[in-house]
Design a protein around this nucleic acid. Structure first.
Lengths: 125, 125
DNA sequence: TTGACATGAAACCAAAAGGTTTCGTATAAT
DNA sequence: ATTATACGAAACCTTTTGGTTTCATGTCAA
């Protein structure tokens, strides 16, 4: 159990453009919610909720300073994203060859039957 | 306009675990919907809809062979994911130092005021 | 001590997401 | 011809998402 697998994973956290921009803003330095929300056409509360999702995914850390809460980027969990797509990098080089086969095939062959299939690795992504 | 910026982008497409697994299955070889759906605890139609989303994001290509439609992985759009991620790689090395500062700060300083801010790059992610 | 600021929690809402079942159509097999 | 397969489209439903407004609390400033 490496990944915390909590309610919000990195993939989902990063799926929203607002949250992606939040991460970029926070990459410079830590910032309180009010400052962050000034960059978006939505309410402070909405931004606050986005921050909580990022926090649950472990992508930001928070810290109270007086009456404000400052958020800071934690890029750590992004590693999971990298690991995931790096799996596909090996297909990058094959892409041309694969496309070639794709085009050349006349489709007359039946789809290969049993397939062995990886099966059973259901939620391993 | 490099990115097609259509209804479904790569980030969103990849946010769903079912779709991520679909991509993995397809990385081996092309497959028709029925075979793919046998790997999931949901209806064929549901899988079909996931495939359409992947297709809209450009991550899979389809091809009719007789009465079946075979889907194939196109890893190309994953580049966008990689590019995005790579922006944050430079913060990896700083992570320790940053955390250090994070801990050391006594919070007595007010949050830096004007901040100049990148502003205006709204939807550039 | 009184008021202004910073923020999260709560209640609420509309739209999107993820599924299901049903149906129509094209292709393959008998 | 007729039946079985493969599949997408459509209609429908429930839960999640992304937002809003309102409210309570803690902290800073006068």
């Amino acid at each position: 159990m490496t990944a915390t697998a909590s309610k919000h994973d990195v993939f989902q956290a990063v799926a929203d453009p607002t949250r992606r921009q939040l991460l970029k803003l926070l990459s410079d330095q830590e910032m309180p919610v009010t400052v962050l929300s000034s960059h978006f056409p939505m309410s402070r509360t909405a931004v606050s909720k986005h921050l909580r999702i990022l926090s649950e995914a472990g992508l930001v850390k928070e810290r109270k300073v007086g009456r404000e809460t400052r958020y800071r980027l934690d890029p750590g969990p992004l590693q999971e994203l990298k690991d995931w797509y790096s799996y596909f990098e090996r297909f990058w080089e094959n892409k041309m060859a694969a496309l070639q086969h794709f085009v050349e095939s006349d489709g007359s062959e039946r789809f290969p039957a049993p397939l062995t299939m990886v099966e059973k690795e259901k939620e391993q992504d």
